[in-house]
Structures are given as structure tokens and as C-alpha cells.
Amino acid sequence: MINLAVKIGNIQFKNPVTIASGTFGYVKPYTKASDLKKLGAFVPKTITLKKRVGNPLPRIVETASGMINAIGIENEGLDYFLQNKLSSLESLGIPLIVSISASSNDEFMILAKALDAKASVSAIELNLSCPNLANKKLIAQDAAATAELVRQIRGAVTKPLIAKLSPNVTDISEIALAAQDAGADAVSLVNTFMAMAVDIQRRKPVLGNITGGLSGPAIKPIALKMVYDVKRRVQIPILAMGGIMSAEDALEFLITGATMVAIGTASFINPKAPLEILEGIKKYMKAHKMSDIHKLIGSLKI
């Protein structure tokens, strides 16, 4: 028997594999995917307080080993989420990590409190790092702003808080440390890398938003190095994502020190990827005669 269970704060997850926000919608497109219940947790698309229509078109462009997106957190807002989406997510029967984003700390607070009051929400992910919201600076690009927000929310909610960090910084471990010291229960990293593409025939940006966020295997080695950097400085669990396509990719992150891994862009190409990755991790552990995932997490030999 292999023990795959991991913890963030006081919440136990039966295994370390989840999905990255924004890549599985609110589960409805995959309702027949009953095997999603096998995952450690489900993370629905980031919600905001008010409805957001999202960014102008086009919103995605394919690149070498990846894609750039600038969706702009199109969503129906908090009330709609609570009334129309939460019950179907609850029916999955696995822990829900709800991702939230806002344009002010006050809005973050309203969202966090509303979700804190829901028994079916296991943890709250503060998305401090969406690159597509026309902000001059992301919260996750400023250690003091990150600390301030996490501290405020921490003071008002009881559920575990996960700060989702941006790779678009000089030193991500500084931001992770600030989040930890302010009371975050975990950090998730990384969000997408700011990027763009140009249509040379029209000499215009491909994306309606001009810039977007790069995801996919193109960013995996950089994301992995960031997990390595953060692991050396913080003690709270790391939820890692960034171009994970296979069990081998996920294992690299776990060995480097991630407590959980999130599968994002890979699901667009292969909706079965999260489940296949979970199976692959089990297979690896069997082959290496490991009975506990904690023997694997952070086992990197330097």
C-alpha cells in the first residue's frame, strides 16, 4: 500500500495531483470524467467579485512547445459561482481549492470571506499573479504588497491560504518568503510567463491584449528552478505547476520539493493527463519501492 496523502494547512489531500486553475473550467466540460474524483483536489477557474467579460480576441496563440494566453479571467463573478457552479464542483467529492483574483485588497477580502463561509471549500488560492489584467504591477511582483494582502486575509479567514506567485520577478523566493511570513499556508508557483507573438504579415501583435502568459513544456525547466529556489528558503508546502506534461515532469517537481503538482496546459492536449500522471507517480514509487510520498518529496540529492 502506497501512502500518497499530503497536507496543506489542516487539509489532507489523498494524493498530490491536482489541476491548475483556468484549465478545466468549472468541471462541466468534463462532467463525464468521473475519474477526476481520483485526483487530490480540484481547482476551478479563478473567480472575481464581479463578472469579467475577459480580454479582446484573439486570446491564444500556439508557440514552440507551448502557448500564450490572454483570456483575462472571463468569469461570471462570485455570486454566480456560489449559486450555479459550486454544487456541481461539490459533487466531485474531492477537496476544492478555489482560486480568487481582485483589483483591490478589499475585493480580495470579500471573496475570501464568502468562500471561507462555505463548508465545501477546502482552501483558498489567492491568484496574485494573473499577467492579463492590465495592472501596471502584479501583487506577486512586490514582496511588501504580497505580505500586506496575505496578512489581511489571514486575519479574517480560517481556511488554508495558498498564494499563487508570478515567475515574472527577479527573485521568486523573496516573494514566497513574504507570503509565508504573512501567514500563507502554501505557495503555488508558477503562473505564466509574460510573453507575446507578432503577426509579421500584418505587423501587429497576434493577441488582442498585445501580451499574454506563456505556459506549457517550454517553461518547465524555469518553473522547476523556481521551485528549487523557493524550497531552499521557505518551509510551507509548495504547489508546483509549469509545463507538466507527464509523470516524469511531475516527479521532477516532487523530488525538487513540491508537495503537490498541478496539471494545466497539458489537459488541453490530453484531458487524461492529470490521471495518467497520477498513475505514473504510483508506478514510479512502486518501481523504487517507496511506500510514502514524503520519501519522494524534496528527496533531491545535491
Binding site: 484549465t23 473550467g25 480576441l57 491564444i60 472571463e74 484531458p271
Partner: peptide, 16 residues
Amino acid sequence: EVMACGVGACLGCSTK
């Protein structure tokens, strides 16, 4: 339209 997920999850292929 250029699509990523094809099932309405990513909202990448939206049209006005």
C-alpha cells in the same frame, strides 16, 4: 477558430 481545449474550458476561442 484556433482552439486549445475544444470543450469550453479555456475560453481561448471565444468570439464576439
